[in-house]
Design a protein around this nucleic acid. Structure first.
Length: 479
RNA sequence: UCCUGAGUAGCUCAGCCGGUUAGAGCAUCUGACUGUUAAUCAGAGGGUCGCUGGUUCGAGCCCAGCCUCAGGAGCCA
């Protein structure tokens, strides 16, 4: 038996007349003669031609949709129209059969994305999810490639952390306690000194603070790992467990930070366009078909591939929060009172509808908003000279909203401590963070890029739960 | 968590004004056909109408509560 070849490689070589062995899962078996075989290397199927008159009927019976099979035979130019080559099978072995009566994934039924989410363990076997997870893989690799080429150090920050002082949302507790019998102090409070770590711990909500520690010695670092938020968020762009990329760079100021983020996003999108042409073409078509169902005015102006190309070809629009407020205040929907939250004063946070107006209607391209009021941003962001704003930066993408959130960090100890006091952030718990400002502090900056939001944008999918293999969200931790 | 909508066969859905035996397409099974490619043709099986309670002579349909899902909002990446 010849060595197994993946279908993608086989279709690329185009060589006929050779003996090949292919293994994969049956997508369709027509007329007792034609198997459409898929092995996940590509969405394309390989046609296997079966000599059914000289094949054991029991074997034929067990070639059903979903079954795993191994086929050896000769690769030949196809007699049919739908494909260039096909395999004339000499031996077929069913490695794992698949009872069609019980198999929950019958592709001809056009299962909905919602249904496939309920069978997430099997949805990889569909064209849509095959394409999504190959693209996700490419984007993940591209991120490492980008930072590696720039000499960044990939730093593994802890998943379990002791401090919940960052204010980045609700954290999941990590404990070894028997929850039915939690140790208490004399005054009746939970006695964390008896817990595994001897203190209260939780899953990380961000690797940033630890990332900064690395950057203050290694210069440029990035993290890329899972992050956890115990927020009761039920939206198409939030997960309880998601992956985040957090670079942190010494001697970077806000503009350098924004430059890097824009370069990174363009790099990885461009890399995916190169590496996953077929998958993106498929997702492009999928979206077009889906939008045919919608009324004209709800359809997107650009098809997926055009949108990605457009994103690469144009500079992201950069403006300050203050400038954005002016634009919004003067905007037609604001004057005609079309906004649910009218834009009046300076100082309040932008609502989704405002962000969407800026990105999708006014500029029609990605937008980098900078210099937000300090009241609506985190304690660690560098205070600007105006005394009102901080050197923050959000990147807003069409259809996604905030994809990047970052800032130049406050490197001046006195300013940082004052701000922490104002916000009631316990300085003693973050003594190690403050130490970097005591010993050789320097300007530095960084940002967080939501990986799933990036995958959402590149694949054109509408729900973040469909771009991570096994989504975790309120009331769901199946698989 | 809030607002809106939905839950009927394995999947996607229809089900009139509350009325007698709840339907279709696909899937599945049986048979036919055998260069098909969303194969085709003929037939068959398949239902706790999300759950609980209520109104009614009678509830898939009306009411209440709950569960789950979807879309939007908030929190954010």
């Amino acid at each position: 038996m010849s060595q197994r070849i993946k279908i993608k490689a086989l279709l690329q070589s185009g060589e006929t007349g050779i003996d090949v062995t292919v293994k994969g899962w049956v997508r369709a078996f027509r007329q007792n003669r034609f198997i459409a075989l898929n092995d996940g290397s590509t969405n394309a199927t390989l046609q296997i031609v079966v000599d059914f008159e000289n094949t054991d009927p029991t074997l034929l019976k067990s070639i059903t949709v979903g079954a795993a099979i191994s086929v050896t035979g000769k690769l030949a130019a196809s007699l049919g129209q739908g494909q260039t080559v096909e395999v004339i099978a000499s031996t077929i072995e069913v490695l794992g059969d698949c009872d069609p009566d019980k198999y929950p994934l019958q592709l001809k039924n056009r299962p909905s994305l919602e249904y496939l989410r309920e069978i997430a363990h099997l949805r990889f076997r569909t064209n849509t999810f095959g394409a999504i997870f190959r693209v996700r893989n490419t984007l993940s690799f591209a991120i490492h490639k980008f930072f590696n080429e720039k000499g960044f150090v990939y730093l593994h920050t802890p998943v379990i952390t002791a401090s919940d002082a960052e204010g980045a949302g609700e954290a999941f507790h990590v404990t070894n306690f028997d929850l039915a019998n939690v140790p208490r102090t004399e005054s009746g409070e939970v006695d964390y000194s008896k817990d595994f770590f001897g203190r209260s711990t939780n899953l990380t909500v961000s690797g940033q603070l630890e990332g900064e520690l690395g950057a203050m010695a290694l210069s440029d670092i990035y993290t890329f790992g899972p992050t956890f938020r115990a927020e009761n968020s039920n939206t198409t762009r939030h997960l309880a467990e998601f992956w985040m990329i957090e670079p942190e760079m010494a001697f970077y100021e806000l503009k350098d930070n924004a430059d890097l983020a824009e370069e990174l996003l363009k790099y990885v999108i461009s890399y995916a366009l190169e590496q996953n042409q077929e998958d993106l073409q498929f997702l492009n078509q999928r979206l077009l078909d889906e939008e045919k169902q919608k009324p004209q005015n709800e359809r997107s102006e650009l098809a997926l591939l055009d949108k990605l190309q457009f994103c690469l070809a144009n500079d992201f629009e950069r403006l300050t929060y203050t400038e954005a407020i002016e634009i919004l205040r003067e905007s037609t929907p604001n004057k005609k009172k079309k906004f649910q939250f009218p834009v009046e004063g300076w100082g309040t946070d932008l609502q989704s509808e405002h962000e969407r107006y800026l990105v999708e209607k006014h500029f029609k391209k990605p937008v980098i908003l900078t210099d937000y009021p300090k009241e609506i941003k985190s304690f660690y962001m560098r205070q600007n000279d105006d005394g009102k704003t901080v050197a923050a930066m959000d990147i807003l993408f069409p259809g996604i909203g905030e994809i990047v959130g970052g800032s130049q960090r406050e490197e001046r100890l006195d300013k940082l401590e004052t701000r922490m006091d104002e916000l009631g952030i316990p300085k003693d718990e973050l003594w190690w963070y403050l130490d970097t400002r005591r010993f050789g502090s320097c300007p530095h900056a960084g940002f967080g890029l939501g990986f799933e939001r990036l995958v959402l944008f590149v694949t054109g999918m509408g729900n973040i739960r469909d771009v991570i293999p096994f989504p975790r969200f309120p009331k769901n931790a199946e698989f």
